[in-house]
Every structure is written in structure tokens, then in C-alpha cells.
Design a protein around this nucleic acid. Sequence first.
DNA 1: CAGTGAGCGAGCTTCCGCTTGACTT
Length: 675
Amino acid sequence: MKLIIVESPTKAKTLTRFLDDVYRIEASVGHVRDLPKSELGVDIEHDFAPKYIIPRNKKTRVKELKNLAKQADEVILATDPDREGEAIAWHIGTLLTVDSQQSTANNDDLVNHRYKRIVFHEITKSAILEALQYPRSIDMRLVDAQQARRILDRLVGYTLSPLLWKKLSRRWLSAGRVQSVATRLIVERERARARFVKESYWTISAEFSTSDGHRFIADLVAYNGVPYEQSVTIPLFDGLYTVTKTTIPDEASAKRIIDDIQAPFTLLSVDTKDVRRSPPPPYTTSSLQQDAGRRLGLSSKKIMQLAQRLYEEGYITYHRTDSVNLSNQFLRDARSYIQKTHGDQFISPEPRRYATKSKVAQEAHEAIRPTNISLRSKDLEGKEGIQQDHIRLYDLIWKRAVATQASDALFRSTTIRMQSVNTYVFQAKGSIIQFEGYLKILGRDVADVLLPQLSQGDSVQLVAATPTEHATNPPPRYTEASLVKALEEKDIGRPSTYASIISTILERQYVQKEEKALVPTDLGNAVTDFLVQYFPDIMSLPFTAIMEELLDQIARGERPWPPVVREFYLPFSKDLDHAQTVAEKVKLSEEKIGEQCPECGGDLVVKLGRYGKFIACSNFPSCSYRRQYRETIDRVCPKCGGAIVVKRTKTKRMFFGCVNYPSCDFAAWKKDQIP
DNA sequence: CAGTGAGCGAGCTTCCGCTTGACTT
């Protein structure tokens, strides 16, 4: 028997189908060893030596793997082909080879002597057979890069968090390389919105008619050769934001312009141009969360839960990936599907392959795609454990992946410009689809804008001009989807963590959701200000990118890992000492509710606890009176006239109920269900 | 996820990244 170890149980099941029964395929189910949760686990005095333990929930798995390894003629470590996968392979190899009494020196040679390491990038029979032909040894440089990453994150997280407990007097607080910068993005965006000064401006549009009676709308764009539109670019913490407005400041100016326009109009130009549009790349974790979040209105967490199910049932490839690569088999299947269903003209001339932009992408998996192209979303209906949301998500994944192999869509866009005798220029833009191409599969997202057929010299008449008021908009708040996009662009976090980063900063109450938008709390602002003041490097956007550069040096074998960690740790620990001694305790404002404490007569205030707000006496700890905080809304109970308060179900879903519960049982899911 | 609901919190917490399971607090 030959034992192959992979990370995911689903992958193990698939490989079992591909290979004959000489092979026994088992899953590690992720990492099997880690730093202990209850202590730092890094010996700073001795070259940052890590202390690894087997987490309790992994003990039985490791035992089973050990037993199987004993019986096996050969052990093949086939974990994912990336930094984390290489480390998992090494940890497994070490655990299976070395008993706990033995020193850890020179284990690596021993592991490599006993075990083979293979990698493959797609889960197909041919790819696995190929991989088995070319076993190698464990790449300790990659493993060391992972160890440096792990140790660095632990040092930051496990020293900054206790500092926050002390200086902000809240025992559940946390900080880390990823979560703290994610929170900062949201904090900085909110401040940019607060700084933003809204300006109102006006636009003028007019209805025109052609000589044969067709009517269309055009916008005023210029006078005397000078455009009305102007844009200003303002710098944000994480990029640039462009605000566009016109130079027409108020209604009076708009009316003056309209009065000044003098007929007749001459047709200046009719420009048509053909525009090709190519299909978007197949989904990665990040783009799936963005797109499904937008189109289906689901949270990142929910999307990943749904995708997990689709993956486990074998309907899609792995859903935690940063790769846009598609297997050759899939390309063939998609192309022949399109040809059969839609005809030759709908296939792209050449197979389309996509390249990943990100420098830190590890490309251990394929893009997210259906495993079986002939399985359509409607075929999933009624399947065990499959709900409507699974089907809708699968439909998005199927269409996006198949559409990559379809031909470009072709649009004809037309721009018509007209000028009055006194040089006012109006412009109308139209766009008509000429050839659907990939949109046949993905679906149309924009409607045709039709303009009348005109050619130079034709006459047009102005029917009526109307002014419209607008206001400039501040940069938008982040949503889960746009935050994930920003994190990915800045190379902060990994596909397997995007959803949990959001959960963490919500749980810590640094951020709250208002509708779809992420808004910082007082606590989030205070923690961010504190960290930015004392740890500007870690809180900066390029920090992770710089760290990745250093990890690459380790992975290329240019440097051993301990000096790299030291180079980071020395200045960091200086900042830490400085903050410990210099930083004042941060006081968070606690709002009085205008009510006296029934026990001691002191002021009652709203306090923030681990699980949210609660009401307590301002004389704590001498007085320990406390009760639950209830947020009221501006509606009254239709049954008894009592106040309506915000409540939560056991599963944390929000609903609205009467304060007089249980004597009054009125409840509603939505605000507008209450009269 | 189904179809609504109870009184905690104010001494032992916290990181990031890989993967799913689940008799307990």
C-alpha cells in the first residue's frame, strides 16, 4: 500500500476514484501542527525558535495517519503546491518520522530520506499520474518562509492584543497584521467622507427632433470650445478618488444659459465606432465574493458556506483560490459545449487563458469552475442538501467559467454632436449591440441606447431644454465585497481568510454593518488611532507587501529565516516598549441615558461589553447595577402602543419586537411591516 | 437558516492561514 496525503477530504475522495487500490489517499484536513494558543510559543532569546504542538482537534487525525504510515510501503506528501502546503507536508513528515523525545535537529534530511513530495495544479487523472512520475524532496526554503510568516504574525498579534487590553481597558480586543489594516481602511474611508464637502451643480439636457420627426435627448457639454464638465482628484488613504461636476453652480446660471441658446443648430459630427468587449476572467475567491455579493446580496461568509457545499458535492473546483487558470480539459469541454449549443461563431478563435495580476498569488489551485460542464444549475434542483442559494451561486460560477471561451461581444457606439449658432454644443451617446458573443452565456447587463439615423448636414431642432440639480458624492463606504477587493489588491490576507477577516472585525465591534455598508464604531476609531500613533509601520498599507518581499528572499534561499524575523522584531519591540511606558489609557466616551441608578442613584451609562452594548452604573466597580441595552426605533407597537425595540434570534438574525414581551407578543422581521 | 423571544457582560483573553466537523461551555 502506498499512502498519499492531501489537505482536503474531498480531494482525497476524488483521487481515490482516479487511482488503483495500491494507493490509499488520506487528508490532513489542513494544518496538523501549530503554535500553542495559550502562550506566545516563540523563544525570542533563542533565534525565535517556535514551539509546535498538535491542536487537540487534530490529535486523532495525526494518530490515524501515523498508523497508516507504518503499514505503508511508501508515503507521498501531496499537499497543496504553495508555501502553506509545503509547510504542512514538512510538519506531517516530521510527525510521522520523529518521535517526540528526539531532538529536532536534522529532521529534514530524515524526512526527505523517507518520504516523497509531489505537487499537482489540477485534479485530473493525467495530472496526478504525471506528478507521481516526478517526486522531489521537501523544499525547506519554502517551509522556512512559512515559518517566518507564522512567527511574525504571532509576535505581532500576541503582543499588540494584550497592550490594547491594558491601554483601552477592554479584554476582548485584538490586533494583527491583517485585521488592523482592514479596520484602518474602513476608518480612513469614513473620515474622508466626513471631510468631503458636498457641492451642488447643475446639468442641462435637451430634447431634439430630426426633420423626419424622431426625438432624442442630448446633454450640454461645451460653450465656446470650453467643456462644462470638470473633474477633481482627491487623495484617499488607499488610492485616488475622482469627483466630476459641471461649472454650472446654481439654477439661475442654468436658466441664463438656456435663455442664451440660439437656434438654429447644426449637426457637427456623427461618430460611430465599433467596440469589442471580452469576457471577464473566471472566478477566484475574491471575485466570487465581490460578484455574488453584489448580484445575490449575500455576505462573504454565506457565499463561502454555499461554495463549500458545492465543492464537497463535487459540483465545482476548490473555492479558496487566487488562480484564474483553467484546465485544458475544461477549455476543450467549454468550447465544444458552446459550439454545440450556440454555433461556431460563438467560440473564441483561440482558447482563452488568463494571467493572475497579483505578485503574491500562489496559484495552488485552479480558478473556480464547474467540474462537469453538462451539469446545469437546474439539474441541481431537488438534490439532497441543495437549496435555492446553492443553485443561484452555481449558476453564476457555471456561466462565468463557460463564457471565458466564448467570442467577444461587439457594440456599435455612436456619438452625435450638435452646435447652436452661438457655440453651445450638445452631445448624445448611443450604443447598440452588434453581436452578443459571450453575453449570450453571461446575459446582457446593459440595454441598447438607440439614436436616430443621422448624417452630417442633417438638420436638428431643439424642442426644450431642462436644467437638473445634482450633488457631488463623497467616496462610498466599503461593503464586504469592495473591502475584499481592496484587501486583494493590496495583497493583504489570503483567499481562505477574506471572509473571516470581516467576521473578526465585526465580532470585535471595530466595525458594524449598516445595510450593506461597513461603518467604523467609536471603538474601531479609538483602537486604530492608538495603533497608528505607536505602530505606524505595521498599520501602513505596504507592510504586508514588504513582508512578502522578505519571505521571498527566504524562499529563494538567499537568507535564513531567523535574521529576517529579527530584522523586523528589533524595531517593533522598541515601539512596543515605548507604547507600554508612554501611552496613556484611552477613555471611550460612555453616553448617559438620563436615568438614575435604582441602587445607588448614580448616572446610568451605555457601556460596551464583549457581546455589545449594555446599561450599567457609572459608579462601577463600587456599584455593580447593570441591565440589558435595547435599541428603540421610531415605531410603536400596533397591538399595545408600546415601544418597538431591536432584537435578535438565537441565530443572531435581527427582528423587531414589542418591549412588553411576553405580555405582548408583537414581532416583525422588517421595519416597514410595522404600521 | 427558518419563520421570530430573554436577562450574559466586569479576570485568563489574542494572531494568520490551512482545512472541516460538531455529545461541550
